[in-house]
Design a binder for these strands. Structure first.
Lengths: 129, 129
DNA sequence: ATAATAACAGTAATCATTACTGATTTCTAT
DNA sequence: ATAGAAATCAGTAATGATTACTGTTATTAT
């Protein structure tokens, strides 16, 4: 309900996410912005990440590794997380989305969305073994 | 590596999960067993849930609601979580599994598994609104 | 300009989960 | 049977991610 006011910190957080292809955690974003905002607070990062994901400008990823990751790419896509190095990568899975959206044919509730991600060993870790 | 020794507590935890169709959290299991084990410790519940899911006897569900749920049904199936009441239900999604297993056609890493679940409003909550 | 209020930095609190500790139970090999 | 080794226990403390609180600062509308 309350109107959002501009803040340099929020813009920097959004820009930071847009410029990256990895999927940083709140802490990584905090550390990455400390040089530009020496007084930045981790709480500010968390609050703005929540605001930005509430408005749909970014996505919050719950990948089951104990900490949330964030993604500036809001076009629909899926993720792969490496069990060895923890890296998060985009993964193309053509047709999965429409398949999943038809899942409610025999379900009597209202399906509003889904979460799906893959895990295993990433190309780099696979090579070093 | 260390051999597992029998424990009454672990057996009770497993039995508790097998006899249920809901998907309780560690705390719910703890509270549910307090009458039979008045000295039961929450740490014991957590430790045994980890042991049992490591051996594949139960499944740990990370459904993004801030706490893990556990499932005594280890046959492959998917879950739906109600955003209103928090209830976790089984949901049948025919063919999704084989579809997802073919996802690595254009991915250069090694996909070992996937996580997928649905969220929305359950039949009961849908009716009361 | 000024008043209203969102946002801030800093810090404390929360909550799920894990780690530690010394006592107890289970198992194995005499 | 029994004694020693080791897993498990209950109880408690610690951890780590995230959220809430507080007094101050920045942004916006009048």
């Amino acid at each position: 309900m309350a109107a959002l006011k501009y803040s340099r910190q929020r813009e920097a957080i959004k820009k930071f996410l847009m410029e990256r292809k990895d999927h940083p955690t709140a802490d990584m974003i905090y550390l990455g912005l400390l040089d530009k905002f020496p007084n930045l607070s981790l709480g500010t990062v968390y609050r703005n990440l929540t605001l930005l994901s509430d408005t749909g400008e970014i996505n919050r990823l719950r990948l089951g590794d104990g900490t949330d990751h964030f993604d500036g790419n809001t076009t629909p896509h899926y993720h792969f997380i490496c069990e060895k190095c923890g890296r998060v990568m985009d993964i193309a899975v053509d047709g999965l989305d429409s398949f999943i959206n038809s899942a409610d044919s025999c379900f009597y509730g209202k399906i509003k969305g889904h979460v799906a991600y893959f895990y295993g060993e990433c190309p780099d870790c696979l090579e070093n073994s």
